[in-house]
Write a protein that binds this DNA or RNA. Structure first.
Lengths: 209, 209
DNA sequence: TGTACATCAGTGAACGCGCGTTCACTGATGTAC
DNA sequence: TGTACATCAGTGAACGCGCGTTCACTGATGTAC
C-alpha cells in the first residue's frame, strides 16, 4: 500500500519560469518506462503521464506530439551511448590503440545489454533522408573507423580497409546483440557478447592481436 | 473505382467440408499485409479480415486469438526461408562446399531483403523457453555449421571452430541485414549486403577462398 | 501601496478511433431414418 | 422419397478498452502603472 503512495500523492507544480523542469521529468519517466517495457510498443503518452503523475494534456506543453517525445528520447539515448564509448576510449592509455578499440566496443555492447528497450529504439528510429555520415549511427561507425586507423598507424595490419573493417565490427556487434535480445537464454549471455566481439576484432587484424 | 470492386464484392463462402481453405486465405492476406506494412505493428485481426473480405469474427474459427495467427505466420515464414536456403544449397555442385555455403547465405540475405516485415517478424517472435538448438533460428545456425564442416573436410582451414564460425557468419549477416533495414538508403543497397557476407565468409577461412 | 492585467504551469473532460474478442444468429448442405 | 435434425461456414452487432489529441479552464505568480 505504502509503495503506491507516490501514485496518489499530489505533484507540487514547478515555480514560475521553471516549467522546463517538467520536460526533463517527462523524458526521464519515458526512459524508465521504456526500460521496463523493453520495447517501444506499449510506450504511450498516457502511460508516461501516469508515470510522471501529471495529466496527459500536460505533455503537450513540452512536446508537440508523440513523435517528438520519441525523438527526444532517441537523442537522449544517443548522447548517453556516445558518452559511454568516449569514456571507455579515454580510460585506456593512448599507446595501445587496439585496447582502446576493444574498450569502446565493450562499452557499446554493455549499453545494449543494459538497455535493450533503448537500444532497439535508437536502431528503429533513424532520421530518414539525412546524410548517412552525419547520422548518429554513421558517427558511431566513423568512430570505430578512426580507432582502427589508429591501430594501423601503430603497425597492426588490417585484413580489410579500415572503413570496411569498421562496418564489419559494427555490424557484427549489432548482430550479436540483436541475437542476444531475441534469445537471451541461448548463447552464453552477456559474457558471450563481449567475447564474440573480441574475437571479431581479432578477426579483422592480419596479425594475432 | 473499379479497383475497389473487390472490396465491396461478396465473397462466396467455401463449400461444405472445405472451411480450412479460409485459414490459408487468412494467412496469405496476413502475409501480404505484413509485407505492405513492413513491420508487425499495425497488423491487426480487423485489418486482416478486411483484406480477406470477411468479418473479423470469422478469423476466430481458425485461430484462437491474435497470438496464434502471428504464430501461424511465423511458421509459414520459417518454412519459406528454410526452403529457399535448401534450394540454394542444392543448386550448387557438391564438390564446391564453399560455393554451397555462399549460396545458402545468399538466399538467407535475399529473403531478408525481399521481405523486411517477415524477417523482422520471425526475429522478434522466437518461441521462448525451448531448447535453443531446436528453435528455428538455432536450426539455421546448425545448417551453417554443417556447411562449414563440409568446407573443412574439403581442406579449407577455418580460423575459428566450425560452430563458432557459423555464429560469426550468421550474426554478421543478420547485423548487416538489420542495418540495411534500418537505413536502406545508406550503404550500398542489396548488393552491399551480399558482398559484405561474401567478405565475411572469406574472413573465417584461414586461406584465401 | 494598490490594482488591473499578463503570463505561467498545469488540468478535466471530452472527442473520435481502432482494437481484440464474444455471442447469439443465419442459411446452406449434409445425414439418419 | 420425404423429413427432421446435425453440422458446417460465416456474420452483425455489440462489449469495454486504451489510445492521441484538443479545448476551454484554473489558480498562482509576476509586471505595469
Amino acid at each position: 500500500m505504502t509503495e503506491q503512495a507516490d501514485l496518489t500523492a499530489q505533484r507540487t507544480r514547478n515555480p514560475w519560469g521553471q516549467g522546463e523542469k517538467l520536460r526533463v521529468e517527462i523524458l526521464a519517466a519515458a526512459a524508465r518506462l521504456l526500460s521496463e517495457l523493453g520495447s517501444e510498443e506499449g510506450l504511450s503518452i498516457r502511460g508516461v503521464a501516469r508515470a510522471v503523475g501529471i495529466a496527459p494534456a500536460s505533455i503537450y506543453q513540452h512536446f508537440a506530439d508523440k513523435a517528438e517525445l520519441v525523438r527526444g528520447l532517441v537523442n537522449y539515448d544517443y548522447e548517453l551511448l556516445g558518452k559511454q564509448m568516449r569514456e571507455a576510449d579515454e580510460s585506456v592509455p593512448a599507446d595501445d590503440p587496439v585496447a582502446r578499440l576493444r574498450a569502446q566496443m565493450g562499452a557499446y555492447c554493455q549499453f545494449a545489454i543494459d538497455n535493450p528497450g533503448h537500444y532497439r529504439l535508437i536502431y528503429n528510429n533513424r532520421e530518414r533522408g539525412g546524410e548517412p555520415a552525419k547520422s548518429p549511427l554513421g558517427r558511431i561507425v566513423l568512430r570505430i573507423a578512426t580507432a582502427l586507423e589508429r591501430c594501423e598507424e601503430a603497425g597492426h595490419e588490417l585484413r580489410q580497409p579500415a572503413r570496411r573493417a569498421a562496418i564489419t565490427v559494427f555490424v557484427g556487434a549489432h548482430g550479436r546483440v540483436a541475437l542476444y535480445h531475441a534469445a537471451p537464454e541461448a548463447g552464453e549471455g552477456a559474457a558471450g557478447i563481449h567475447s564474440f566481439v573480441d574475437d571479431l576484432i581479432s578477426l579483422v587484424f592480419a596479425d594475432q592481436v
